[in-house]
Each structure stands twice: as C-alpha cells, then as structure tokens.
C-alpha cells in the first residue's frame, strides 16, 4: 500500500517501460483527479507527485495505474488537509470556477458534470472517479482496501444522486423555456 512519506531511490534509473507507462497514463490520471474534485492546477501537481511515487516503486508495482490512483488520492487528501488550514488555499481547491483556468478550457457539458460530481460526498466521488476510468466495483475495492459491498453501495448512492440532479436540471431548463 502506498505511503505518502516513502521514498526509495533504488529504482530511480530511467526505464523505457516506465516512460511508456507515463505517456499512456498521465492525462487519464489528471482526469481522475479532476473527477475526484481537484482544481486543474492541483490535478497537474498531484498527478506528477503520484507518478514520482510510481517511479520510486516501479520494479515492485504490479498494477501501476491502480497504484498511481491510490497514491494520487492520498497526496490529494494530504493537500486538502493542508489547504483547510489555509482558508484561501481551500477556496482555491474547491470552487468549480477554478476549472476555468487559463491552462485549459472545458466544454459546457464537462463543467456541468464536474459540478454535479462535486456535490457528492468524497467517498462517492472517489468511486465515480475510478468507475469513469473503467474500474469495476471489485477492482475498486481491491485498489482502495474497501469491501466490494461498500463500493457498490457508494456507487449506487452516487448514481441515484446524479440522476436526481440531472432530472432537476432538466426541469429547471424546461421552466426557463
């Protein structure tokens, strides 16, 4: 299991296989963090930190994608904890407007989905982030050290909440027409 303070430098020599993995997963890992609720800037930084953690353990990691996501979540939570002690930083980390960073702009539909995801409790948002990356509840349970039934329950509640938000949004749009 990933420990945020662990740094083992025995495996730091450049390896082509790590580089190939990095190229294939950096943007999807960044997207995972955005789904989790990170700002664009935090998602970029945390993805890079998580990739460093993968590189440190490269020879020992069987499933780098799952390891990177578990590491990214731990690093992100540590950052949120720090940000909570600094109100300004906390605001920066959580407001959806932060998504409109000059770094990248998103389609209106993306903004709308991100806002919907941000209304979910963290544990439900996390399960959605894994699910949107193609993981099954059993795989999520294994990667996050939870019971499969717990993951399924979070997923069921998250989907119910998202469906009711969607229905509300549609009703509001109809009323405005």
């Amino acid at each position: 299991m990933f420990k945020a303070t662990e740094f083992e430098f025995a495996t730091l020599e450049r390896t082509d296989s790590f580089d190939d993995y990095y190229r294939s997963d950096l943007t999807t890992l960044t997207r995972f963090l955005l789904h989790l609720g990170a700002s664009v800037e935090d998602a970029r930084d945390v993805a890079q930190e998580a990739m460093l953690a993968v590189l440190n353990k490269w020879r020992f990691v069987d499933e780098p994608q799952a390891y990177a996501r578990a590491a990214a979540k731990t690093i992100f939570m540590r950052r949120i904890g720090k940000a909570k002690r600094d109100q300004e930083a906390a605001k920066r980390a959580w407001v959806p407007e932060q998504l409109r960073s000059p770094f990248v702009s998103f389609a209106a539909e993306v903004e709308s989905v991100m806002q919907m995801l941000r209304t979910l409790p963290l544990e439900q948002r996390e399960v959605m982030a894994w699910t949107l990356d193609g993981y099954t509840p059993s795989q999520i349970a294994k990667a996050t050290n939870q019971k499969p039934a717990t993951v399924r329950s979070h997923l069921r509640h998250a989907r119910a909440s998202l469906k009711s938000q969607l229905a509300r949004n549609r009703n509001t749009a109809r009323e405005e027409e």
Partner: peptide, 22 residues
C-alpha cells in the same frame, strides 16, 4: 463529458516536457 475532458487535457498537456521534468 469524460471523453471531452480527456481530449481537452491531451491538447493542453505537453507529456514529453512533463516526463522530462519528472
């Protein structure tokens, strides 16, 4: 939304530069 988000990120992120920085 997920596919669109990924497309936006792929257009914005210079992966080779990020790898060199890593």
């Amino acid at each position: 939304a997920s596919a669109s988000l990924l497309t936006s990120l792929e257009a914005a992120v210079d992966v080779e530069q990020a790898l060199a920085e890593l």
